[in-house]
Structures are given as structure tokens and as C-alpha cells.
Design a protein around this nucleic acid. Structure first.
Lengths: 147, 147
DNA sequence: AATATCACTTGCTAATTGCAAGCGATAATC
DNA sequence: GATTATCGCTTGCAATTAGCAAGTGATATT
């Protein structure tokens, strides 16, 4: 497919409510998991997402990456070492989702039986510090890329 | 309609990650909007959800309400005044989603053109107070119901 | 030159969503 | 007390979306 135009682009909103805007960009079964893996596990390539996922289909992954780029949440840059590779990186807008992810993790951890208690402990111990730390790490990657 | 059994129940998880748990319960285009309207606008009945929505279909609304009940996020109680009505109320688990909704609103408001700036101002001015206030209001409804 | 890897795309099927209409129970009206 | 209205759904069906398997083209490795 890869339509250049037409295709309704999905940028019209059902309403002006900010929550609705978030839901329209992130309200599906995969987008936030992709962002999680970029933010917390440092994933950058298509292959990493494919291998380590809860089992996403190739076409769905491609579609979600495209939409996240369209929304300005992530960006794609060619790998300087390997011409076949594309590196996906979080934009500032994407990084700003850290508090959303954090609250979703804490909510689920508080009400469901879940794993990754190590991460949950970190968040619970000092949420502000946790957020500052992952942001600082992101700022460093930005600096390294000469942004 | 209140299935006794069968129907796979959707309680098996793709992974133990707490974010995945949240996404599996809330990652669709409607659930969080229903919760928003219960939390912030005081909606309680099927009809209110239908009329005031971004345009949800009847079968989808019924399905989402059923799932939210299944997850323990909301509860249904018959209206004492009108035998036709059902009142949907947030459980504590549902109320605990307030920080998630707040962060999603703030994120969208910070990065997109959105409406309801009044709500956004309230959240920005003092997030802690905002959360305390809506929780206090919920506690009062619980007390009123003799819980 | 042959083979492997990477990031997709394509084709097909299954599941989900959305719209319109209908339905049973309760409530209000005549 | 019979009729009509309202409420909270369910059903049927078309359209969209998700998911699996296989294939493709560009680069990289051997």
C-alpha cells in the first residue's frame, strides 16, 4: 500500500476532548507497548519489536510504526552502519508519554497480578526520580545524535 | 447479557507486564471515554453515554460496559426509582484510573490542539488537588450509598 | 556470485466494529 | 387498564481491522 495521499490520514477527531485525542492516537492493543519497549528497553529496530513482543503481526507492527511517526511520537532514521536497518527513536512528544505509561503500570500493578515487580518497585519508590532518570537517559541519546 | 460461562472471558494475558494488563483492559477507542464521563461528568446511565458521546454504537457500548464490569472497573446497580434503569458506578479500581486519565489529558493538551481548556487548567494548576477533589467527590457518593 | 538479513508488503481469513432495526421490561398517559 | 413511551439492551448484516503466512526488494555477508 504505502499510499502517498488519499487514505483519510486519520487526523480528524471525533471530538475536541484531549482525552479523546490521546485515545485516538494510543487507544489500541499495541501502540503503548511499542512505546514502552523504546522507552524502557531501548528497542530501536523492527526486528527487536518483532522478536520480543507479546506477538505482534508484521503488518500490524508496520502500520503502528507508521501511525506513530504520523503522530510525531516516534521518528525513523536510517542506520549509519547498516543500510538495511531503520532506527526508530522517541521524539520529545513520545518521551512525554512517560508519566502516562508510569501511571498505567502502577494502576495495573495495584489491582492485578502482574510481573516485572522490579520496575514497579522503582516507580513506587520515587516516581519523580524514576521519570527524571529515564528522561535524562533520553536527553543523552538526543545529545549523542547531535540534536 | 451477563453470560454465565463459555465465551473465553478474555482474562488470559499475552504477557505478565503490568502495562500490557492495562492495555488489554483499556486499550480500545471507547473504554477510557466511558470512564472519563463517569468520573468527570457524573454519567451513570446507558442513555447518557449514548446521547453525549463521540458517537458510540449501542452494541459496542453494551459490550464495553460488560467488559468494564468483568474487570471490576465499574459496577451496575438497578435504579431504585425506575425499574428500567441501571446505574453504572465506578468502583475503587475504576476511580484509581484518575491519574492515568489526568496524564493522558495533560499529554494531549500539551502536544495537540484540543478543547476543554478549563479542565486542563484545573489539572495544570494543581494536579494533586485536582485528583484529591474528584476522589473526595467519589468517596461521598460511596458514603451516600452506604458502602 | 550465492546466500542471509532486514524491513517491510501482499493475499487471504477471522474477528471486531458500526449502523439500523427490533425486543422485552418497566413506566407514564389516557 | 389499554396504549404509548422510555430504557437498556440484542440481532442482523455490511464494512473495517487484525492476524497469519508467504513473498519482495534492498543491502550485507561469505
Amino acid at each position: 500500500m504505502t499510499k502517498k495521499s488519499g487514505k483519510k490520514s486519520g487526523l480528524e477527531r471525533r471530538s475536541g476532548c484531549p482525552l479523546n485525542a490521546s485515545v485516538e492516537m494510543l487507544g489500541d492493543r499495541w501502540s503503548l507497548l511499542i512505546i514502552r519497549d523504546m522507552m524502557l528497553r531501548g528497542f530501536r529496530s523492527y526486528k527487536e519489536f518483532m522478536e520480543c513482543y507479546e506477538g505482534i503481526a508484521t503488518n500490524i507492527l508496520a502500520d503502528r510504526l507508521r501511525k506513530l511517526i504520523e503522530y510525531g511520537i516516534i521518528a525513523a532514521e536510517p542506520d549509519p552502519q547498516d543500510g538495511r536497518k531503520v532506527n526508530y527513536v522517541l521524539t520529545r512528544k513520545g518521551m512525554d508519554l512517560a508519566p502516562v505509561l508510569t501511571e498505567m503500570v502502577l494502576w495495573a500493578a495495584g489491582h492485578e497480578e502482574t510481573g516485572n515487580q522490579q520496575l514497579v518497585q522503582l516507580m513506587r519508590a520515587d516516581k519523580t526520580k524514576f521519570l527524571a532518570d529515564i528522561r535524562a537517559r533520553w536527553e543523552r541519546t538526543q545529545a549523542a545524535a547531535g540534536k
